[in-house]
Design a protein around this nucleic acid. Structure first.
Length: 286
DNA sequence: TCGCTAGTAAACAATT
DNA sequence: TAATTGTTTACTAGCG
């Protein structure tokens, strides 16, 4: 496989020379010894805080998916209800007592779906699973083992799956330029291995890719950053708060938007580009 | 048919 | 020494 993960051909055509620049980026910021604190604060916080607060830490990472995507999945029509979405797993694990939206699907039929979902492979790529795991973590960085744990927790399918999926996770972490290895703290008394975080250079661009290819309404839920992003004071947590997953967004395994998700990630060659992308994304329909 | 991406398996080295 | 982690390579399948 080539060095580009998730780069669709049309994106390559749009951004000739991207690969070379991305390689340079990797050399500049990847696999380095990014301080953990730094990783947890500014470098990863490239996204825009749509509400300008810090209390939405949760909503800006995985909750946007849980709260919005889950709604769209569960209400999105027959495809959504029958597609054995892993989000149903999430719902089954954590949302069973969280409200009417989940209880409305707690019928025998719903339980059957949950059982099925336990056996169904999540419609997310490993890259996206890793991304979600990292994003939901308070420090926006996780060791491999905790990534395993998050995936197991939210996608019970893997608990019964052959252990090869862990190899795939590690493979993605190493191969996917979206993920950066962060050395643990100097003390390094707890556990082996490094922490993994999402490369902030790539993160904003995925939103554009999502909107373009699979989530045309995603930008409708973004608000522009209060100020132009910069390396010193990057915007925080631009995310698809309410982006509209449709059941038809997952017509098949290969149509899962993770390819689009990460295809855009490689399109930006600089922080400013990324900022422009995210900013324009939030304004494009307004 | 071809090119691309994602998934999987495997081997290997380094680390704990 | 064993287990875990990280890297790399190779192959396959699905999709456009």
């Amino acid at each position: 496989m080539g060095p580009i993960i998730g780069m669709s051909p049309d994106k390559k055509a749009e951004f000739p020379g991207m690969q070379e620049q991305r390689t340079g980026l990797r050399g500049a910021c990847g696999a380095g010894t990014l301080p953990e604190a730094e990783c947890a604060s500014s470098p990863l916080a490239t996204s825009v805080d749509c509400r300008g607060g810090s209390e939405d830490e949760e909503l800006t990472n995985l909750n946007w998916l849980h709260e919005n995507l889950l709604q769209n999945f569960t209400l999105g029509g027959p495809e959504a209800l029958t597609s054995a979405s892993p989000l149903l797993d999430i719902e089954g694990d954590h949302g069973a007592s969280q409200g009417p939206s989940s209880s409305s699907h707690s019928s025998a039929h719903g339980k059957g779906r949950e059982r099925d979902s336990l056996k169904s492979k999540p419609p997310f790529s490993f890259s996206l699973l890793i991304y979600m795991a990292i994003e939901q973590s308070p420090r926006k960085s996780l060791p491999v083992k905790e990534i395993y744990g998050w995936i197991l927790e939210h996608f019970p399918y893997f608990s019964n799956a052959p252990t090869g999926w862990k190899n795939s996770v590690r493979h993605n972490l190493s191969l996917n330029k979206c993920f950066r290895k962060v050395e643990r703290s100097l003390g390094k008394a707890n556990g082996k291995g490094s922490l993994w975080c999402v490369d902030p250079e790539y993160r904003p661009n995925l939103i554009q890719a999502l909107r373009k290819q699979h989530f045309p309404t995603a930008d409708a839920f973004c608000t522009p950053p209060a100020s132009p992003p910069s390396a010193s004071s990057p915007p925080r947590h631009l995310f698809l708060q309410g982006c509209s997953f449709k059941g038809t967004d997952y017509p098949s395994r290969r149509a899962v938007p993770t390819g689009a998700f990460f295809s855009g990630v490689f399109r930006s060659t600089s922080a400013q580009d990324a900022a422009d992308v995210s900013f324009n994304l939030c304004h494009i329909k307004h």
